[in-house]
Amino acid sequence: MTKNNRSGDNQSAFGELLFVREVEQFLFYEVGLLDDRRFEDWTDLFTEDGYYWAPAEINQPDPASGVSLFFDDVPMMRIRFARLRHPRVHSQIPPSRTSHSISNVTAKRSGTGDRVEVEARFQMLDYRPGHDQRAFGGKYEYVLSRGDGGRFRIASKKAVIINCDDVHLPVAVPF
């Protein structure tokens, strides 16, 4: 192996590191918006035809095969969050607080490189005053695309929580 090649390898490895880091930073920002209750900004991260899906069964093949914990397109997200802003959304008075953490991030480019497939593990703590704190966790799968200025947009997000088929108390803020 020549010196030049090694430097090329280093360069691509470094590029890869920066790329994964960029993806991670985006994911941290994304779930942070939920925790900060910036729901409208969060919704704006999705492409117009984007969606967010949480299956109700662990191996559910698609949202058409059965009911889901949620399967929101962007208009539905806007309705969901506008409701959370309603002064008499009784089941959220007082509102839930959440804390999302993300780890084990892998990202790979697909197609022409504008499309990025991401997998990660996550945990969400959920606390509503007067109720027991809950912990949800599982696997995220994203398809990201590059929007204006090369910024990531979410074409799709899927959250499979490991107890998706459990009997749940109400969940207000998405995973």
């Binding site: 109700a56 949202p63 058409a64 914990l69 949620f70 009784h90 089941s91 108390l169 969940v171």
Partner: peptide, 25 residues
């Protein structure tokens, strides 16, 4: 049937916009 499932997600799931308020009551 697919539309039916999607509507049930909105009204009857644990993340529903409707029955969560019943549960609160």
């Amino acid at each position: 049937f697919r539309d039916q499932l999607i509507n049930l997600n909105r009204t009857h799931s644990p993340t529903s916009l409707v029955q969560t308020d019943d549960v609160e009551a």
